[in-house]
Design a protein around this nucleic acid. Sequence first.
DNA 1: CGGCCTCATTTTGCATTCATTTTTTATCTT
DNA 2: AAGATAAAAAATGAATGCAAAATGAGGCCG
Lengths: 246, 246
Amino acid sequence: MIPEGGAPIAQSASGNGTDRQEASLHGEILLRLRDYVVEGNIPEGARVPERQLCEMLGISRTPLREALKVLAAEGLIELLPNRGARIRQLSQRDLEELFDVMAGLESLAGRLACEAITDEEIAEIERLHYKMYGHYLHRDMHGYFQINQRIHESIVAAARNETLRAAYANFAGRIRRVRYSANFARKRQRWAEAMREHEAILDALRRRAGSELSDILFEHLRNKRTAAIEHLAEAREATAATAAGG
Amino acid sequence: MIPEGGAPIAQSASGNGTDRQEASLHGEILLRLRDYVVEGNIPEGARVPERQLCEMLGISRTPLREALKVLAAEGLIELLPNRGARIRQLSQRDLEELFDVMAGLESLAGRLACEAITDEEIAEIERLHYKMYGHYLHRDMHGYFQINQRIHESIVAAARNETLRAAYANFAGRIRRVRYSANFARKRQRWAEAMREHEAILDALRRRAGSELSDILFEHLRNKRTAAIEHLAEAREATAATAAGG
DNA sequence: CGGCCTCATTTTGCATTCATTTTTTATCTT
DNA sequence: AAGATAAAAAATGAATGCAAAATGAGGCCG
């Protein structure tokens, strides 16, 4: 007997760019669960009872468990033996490591992009850059961040390396929930720096200076990391205090 | 009823460095299957009937299928809908991409290593380097390759980034079977070049010149890639000819 | 004689069931 | 009353059963 209360399955969710394997229940479930987790719909460290998810998704435990195993392999959740699944709690160290790996991958993407990028693609990135500059001038954080992400994705796409793109998407998914909250909210100085770095990125890209671009991208992401970690540490302290204080 | 003909389960195989999750049947199966595939015990593109694997491993299909899903997520096998698992056939393009990603990760590892590596670790790598040089002088390919791999692993270890190490191990596993056969068998010139590059790597490492080391490592791996792809293309042509010719 | 269609067999996908382990709760002891 | 203990409830891990899809064989038609 299949419970019918849950959400419909068919609507393939719009995703984070990782591999899509449609049409098989567990594949569909995987996509939906991944997005669900990545979007941050479940609090960190929270237990995820299988039964509940089954009802929510309207399926039996078998395909669900298969999907959970994959998500665990991707690093999104933790699977404690005999104790079920938990949303993976990222320690500060984990985040530092993830940011560094992302930096390495983008650095690589920039280097490869210089070998293959077309003038049209560069023009498109320039267009995004100036649009982003507009958001910066208007202090529109949300718009800025969105375009910023598109620029970085464009660079990864220009690398013409599907394996790299998939790996990048995977790591991006792991830190996505943190990344959203890890902007230089009030740090205007850092924001200005980031803009300058982006100009340098564009410049190196125009000149197809792969090695140089690689360096700039790494440093850029490194600075992002520092800002994000600081921000997150403050946020966690705050929530810890709230939790403790009542 | 559990068939008892198969191999015993308990012996945790020595592995490729990816995450270990012992003690749960599917975890044990995952380790064994991964090693089994990585070692190249199954020909490329071959179908792997679940039933047969179940008998071989002495388990039911449920944990096996969970393990297969994970291996597919890791990129070691392919899971065609309703058509079962195949050992993933790596196209030449796939290999190029994989080598580039490996190059990027090692490049990153070198950069990070320069920030944290101790004098003792450098000394250890130097020791390996000279040992490798000995193998080079004696034209001992196998010994050379083994030490070479240990050097690269040492650099990754020195990066002090567990996330990076796991990703590196994953990608290394995917191309392991190819890598073994992808040496500069008769190309003595390339071998000499590789030795020179290794000296440059050591030099940059001693000076903790992260950005420079990053460049050198990338180029080093890039050259390796070229050699490997060429070698593999020849090998595939040969086997194709053999298969066609009878 | 070769290509196509139909049917039997095999294999995969999923649900259900059984066995263990964990977690909770109620009771008992100190 | 607090802690420990044991039984009950719930959740996980694995196996089995059933339906659907794919593969292969055999016959039919051109």
